[in-house]
Design a protein around this nucleic acid. Sequence first.
DNA 1: CGCGTTTACTAAACCGGTTTACGTGCTTGT
DNA 2: ACAAGCACGTAAACCGGTTTAGTAAACGCG
Lengths: 338, 338
Amino acid sequence: MANLQDVAKAAGVSKTTVSRYLNGSLELPAKTAEAIDAAIRRLEYVPNPHARRLSLGRSDTIALVVPDIASPFFATFVAAVEAEADKQGLSLALHATLNRPDREITYLDRIRQGHVDGLIFVTNHAGNAALAAKLNSAGPCVVVDEDVAEARVPKLFCDNEQGGYLAGRYLAEAGHRHVLFIGGIDQMISGARRFRGFERGLREVAGETAKIERSCGTYTFEAGREAGRRFAARTQARPTAIFATSDELVIGLYEALGEAGLVVPRDVSVMGFDDVGPLHLFAPAVTAIRQPVRELGKRALELLLDARPVDPAKPPAEALLPVTLVERHSVGPPPVVP
Amino acid sequence: MANLQDVAKAAGVSKTTVSRYLNGSLELPAKTAEAIDAAIRRLEYVPNPHARRLSLGRSDTIALVVPDIASPFFATFVAAVEAEADKQGLSLALHATLNRPDREITYLDRIRQGHVDGLIFVTNHAGNAALAAKLNSAGPCVVVDEDVAEARVPKLFCDNEQGGYLAGRYLAEAGHRHVLFIGGIDQMISGARRFRGFERGLREVAGETAKIERSCGTYTFEAGREAGRRFAARTQARPTAIFATSDELVIGLYEALGEAGLVVPRDVSVMGFDDVGPLHLFAPAVTAIRQPVRELGKRALELLLDARPVDPAKPPAEALLPVTLVERHSVGPPPVVP
DNA sequence: CGCGTTTACTAAACCGGTTTACGTGCTTGT
DNA sequence: ACAAGCACGTAAACCGGTTTAGTAAACGCG
């Protein structure tokens, strides 16, 4: 394969000239320029990106670390980031952690080693100090969707509190006074915020006597199924509505409720969160809080690129994207107690 | 940041020694080895990957080109490839073409320029000669899921013909004699194979008088909605069953049928293809041909790594993965004609 | 003692770009 | 006629590894 030297020789100039001509730091008379162009075409020259990167000290690549690519939420997020990266002429190196903290650390080390120019980091479990320390020393980096408390980097979230609030009000307005919240453990800031908003919204309408139960766990199908099974097994004083705070939880929950012969919303009302999957086709279509996932991806990259010159004095930017309530058919009045 | 030279100086040896020691091409007495280890720890040395890649001429990165990452089918596929790549210590550069042929060409050019060590290429539309030519000169490369006819590279598909066959037989056995096939245009080999199998399966049970209609188009929600609306608008001699050959088509179709007030499977039976999304939660749960998508991803990478020494004499390997029929509740007997 | 072998290591070239700092040779102004 | 200035470039260092082809010193052995 032809290199810069070959082109230079073929065009009768030095490789400095070719290099500088190609990246615009040198004006050349038409004749010389054409000779170089011709040589490039004839030799089918393409610059070697590895040499380029070594020389320039950057890779025009950013890394994206997410818990799981197959999940619709993250898949959509990744798609949005990729689209934006492509627009900026950047490549995307994709890594899935599958929620294993050791993997997160490994990837962060790789980033620091200069593999990439920047990092968009998404985790799915409670952050810890070790992780935060790595993030702080990882170079240009943003944290998205789930907070890592001690990380001093730009952050981008959906307005989880507002989402919880909307759901709480909505269920209370539908008449529910005893509800079940299924969601992440309290150490997960997104989960805590959703719960806090939910409680606030519910109590604002239903008052202090309203009863909120909470089932903690991961945002997985299995956790949804579990919670659904436990719910279905109860025979008395059962909540009349469930707020399942991710698409996966809703799907698992629907499965379990269906298996147990419970009909939504006749026997129990259900609200979802995320609304990325085709929740409108479920039986019945799921009323849910929708996260603007594509926007999240787009903004994540913008934030990363903007954040390049990090000012250690002032705290990094933290952006909040609005959520919306999508009304469908999975919420009704509470069933009449027999 | 410390480099090899710094480490060498600190350990009192030459950088050759450090380099060779680190990659195992040199045995050192314990004392020297320890001096080097200590220097590395003290300076927090990590090798510069760009220099490494330039020197070695490889990047330990493979590129994955898919039409759209957000679609559950490709998302799952990407997840499977990423998992396998990680196992092999390879990075993954992800690119979405969004079905734009110019993008496909652009990415293939980048690959050829040495960006990556290998390429897994997935397209979603009929291939053409220009694309095939690029693939043939792109270096190590495999084509997955949808064929690119003239490309002489290893290929990996699901057994589309068998999938069509299973669906055809199944609908015929349920009593259907007039069916609608919604799927890719005939130039798409996957679509053509599914149709051929479908026809064969149906006729094997229902005989030559069975009537098959075909609605060609892309594998998109919109195409599914369109086909569904056209179907619903017909008042007489309407097919009694529909075979929608992708998850997206099924979803769009379900939407349109629901809007038109048609009930599945009372008014019309539906079969799907892919079965990656949560089709079991739709109303009613969709009977579908399931593609082994994760297996497809895993095998794609294996095939790529195996194929490294390409032998120009014999034709490249072509693997076919089996599909299965997942029976649910969207197929019933044909409605009685009023 | 002298010669071959092993041990322990290294100088320098190489990968293929980018960049700094410095010529040439020709025109122009005075 | 001579310096200044411009147009048109270039030599060589640099990025940070890997690798080839050695060398110097110690050691074993007849």
